[in-house]
């Protein structure tokens, strides 16, 4: 086991973190992804067992990158997300996803994940029809068939709507 540089100092966070963070979808999926990784840089889609994560899978989506690097393609979109998508998305290119939907915002940083090669989580808000403000949180996780080259992405997103604002 390696050692840290001698000059490394501990820095602690003094203010308390909000409660319930461990229940956040993005952190639970990230934890699942880390378990699948084991000692590898990235897990394979073959390792994913949707039946073992039913609560997360309905808010998850799968993106195929290999062969579609410039404009990846949806290979799965969970039932929970389909309701926000306004159209079936399986087989659809990311650029064709309807704008200002939960899914379109969740995949807006796909190229950043491919470039950095690490999980990225982003959140934000957008306005949808009916003057409804939508607060969302998403995550994109790199996946690989050979353990080193990114062949696709596993993502998830959920949201909270705040009607009548904006």
């Amino acid at each position: 086991m390696e050692r840290l540089p001698a000059e490394t100092e501990k820095i602690e966070v003094t203010d308390a973190l909000p409660k319930g963070l461990e229940r956040r979808l993005v952190l639970r999926l990230l934890s699942y992804w880390r378990d699948l990784c084991g000692d590898r840089a990235y897990p394979s889609f073959a390792d994913v067992d949707p039946a073992s994560i039913p609560d997360m899978w309905q808010w998850a989506f799968v993106i195929e990158v290999v062969g579609h690097e410039a404009d990846p393609v949806f290979r799965h979109v969970g039932d929970g997300l389909v309701g926000f998508a306004e159209m079936p998305l399986t087989g659809v290119k990311l650029s064709a996803a309807p704008r200002d939907t939960l899914v379109s915002h969740a995949v807006s940083y796909v190229q950043a994940v491919i470039a950095k090669g690490v999980p990225i989580s982003r959140g934000g808000e957008f306005m949808r029809e009916g003057n409804t403000r939508v607060l969302y949180r998403s995550i994109l996780l790199p996946m690989s068939d050979d353990g080193t080259t990114i062949s696709g992405l596993l993502g998830a997103a959920n949201c909270r709507e705040v009607p009548g604002e904006g």
Binding site: L21, L27, L30, K116, P119, S121, R122, R137
Partner: peptide
């Protein structure tokens, strides 16, 4: 780099 967040609390918690 292991992962990237745009939220401080999530990053520190993780």
């Amino acid at each position: 780099i292991d992962s990237v967040f745009d939220d401080r609390d999530l990053a520190v918690f993780e």
